[in-house]
């Protein structure tokens, strides 16, 4: 075991991906000498060369569009979009081309392209640097959408994403880049949880809390706090947002009878809404309370001096947990 930050764990995972497959490439803005603005690609260009770790022109549509072309030629590009709010110039290439080309071909085309996106708020940034656009991608058939919560998953999941023959949108919780945890970088990934699987992080019996990305830590802290009040909270890290691991979700909710979904994204039309609808359809007779959502209000991301009010925190999660016992 080695103690690594999330940024470093992703870096080690990317290094493994480049070592394991000579067709793997990294491309993005400032990913070379600088090592990315969050240093996730630090040192990779030095070790793997400019042909495999590519500093691209400053145009996101171009990054994804050329990555598609490289994938058609047999390469496996891992693209970095510098910040969540900058993915939209590439949105057309992702939604209309990356997600649909295999379907268009009726099978022969494979596009093993990873799109890494640092996402979420809490870092005191200016506009466009704190967004959570994951539902837009999860709503798009033809994409796999995942998010890691901490260093161990970051290390494993980025390698699994790189090995996937499908396009993967990979959301990295940027405010957790400097969180540290033990990561096993010695043994391979043979026993790792599959990329599309959720993980029961903290087992519990009274209420299920579903979360992903930056909210995994917050929800874990909420579970500890709730246990002090005598409430047993089961925390499930969804990890995969498309497809959803509904088997794990339903098993947990059938056991506890209560569910709170937590994300930084706005609740309207969000991942939580999708999950709540599916739980209602499949677990109706197990429910003791409606599925509650904790997320952002339906406003654009506010100026950073307001973000502590905008983002879900420990108290809002505990408040929702309490409310599920009020029915």
């Amino acid at each position: 075991m080695t103690t690594l930050t999330l940024s470093r764990a992703l870096n080690e995972g990317l290094r493994k991906a480049l070592e394991n497959n000579p067709k793997a490439l990294i491309m993005g803005e400032d990913v070379g000498k600088l090592g990315g603005v969050f240093r996730v690609t630090d040192g990779l260009q030095k070790d793997f060369g400019e042909a495999r770790v590519i500093d691209t022109p400053l145009a996101e549509s171009g990054i994804i569009g050329t990555a598609i072309g490289l994938a058609l030629r047999g390469y496996r590009p891992i693209c970095e979009i510098q910040f969540d709010g900058f993915v939209f110039p590439a949105f057309d290439q992702i939604v209309s081309q990356l997600a649909k080309m295999r379907y268009r071909s009726r099978g022969p085309v494979r596009l093993p392209v990873v799109v890494r996106i640092p996402f979420g708020g809490g870092i005191g940034a200016v506009e466009h640097h704190s967004e959570s656009p994951e539902a837009l991608f999860a709503h798009t058939p033809g994409l796999r959408v995942v998010s890691c919560g901490g260093p161990a998953d970051g290390y494993a999941m980025i390698q699994q994403a790189a090995e996937s023959d499908d396009p993967v949108i990979f959301f990295e919780p940027k405010r957790r880049y400097w969180d540290k945890a033990d990561v096993d970088v010695e043994t391979g990934l043979a026993d790792a949880l599959p990329l599309a699987a959720a993980r029961v992080l903290i087992p519990g019996s009274d209420v299920t809390v579903l979360c992903y990305g930056p909210m995994v830590r917050t929800c874990s802290e909420a579970a500890v706090a709730a246990s002090g009040d005598g409430r047993s909270v089961e925390v499930v890290d969804l990890r995969s947002l498309a497809p959803l691991d509904t088997a794990t979700i339903f098993a947990s909710v059938r056991k506890t009878g209560r569910c709170v979904v937590v994300h930084e994204a706005v609740v309207t039309g969000g991942i939580g809404a999708e999950i709540a609808a599916r739980i209602t359809e499949e677990c109706f007779y197990s429910l003791e309370a409606p599925v509650l959502r904790v997320g952002a209000p339906t406003t654009p991301y506010p100026p950073s001096r307001l973000e502590e009010h905008y983002l879900p925190d420990l108290d809002r999660i505990l408040d929702a947990v309490d409310r599920t016992f009020g029915y």
Binding site: G69, A71, Y75, Q97
Partner: peptide, 25 residues
């Protein structure tokens, strides 16, 4: 011969990426 592309201009980037692949090969 790649698939027909209906969104205007998108395929020029795919072509360019493919050409970058030829260089790397």
């Amino acid at each position: 011969f790649h698939l027909y592309t209906i969104v205007i201009g998108s395929q020029t980037l795919h072509a360019t990426g493919y050409a970058m692949g030829i260089q790397r090969d």
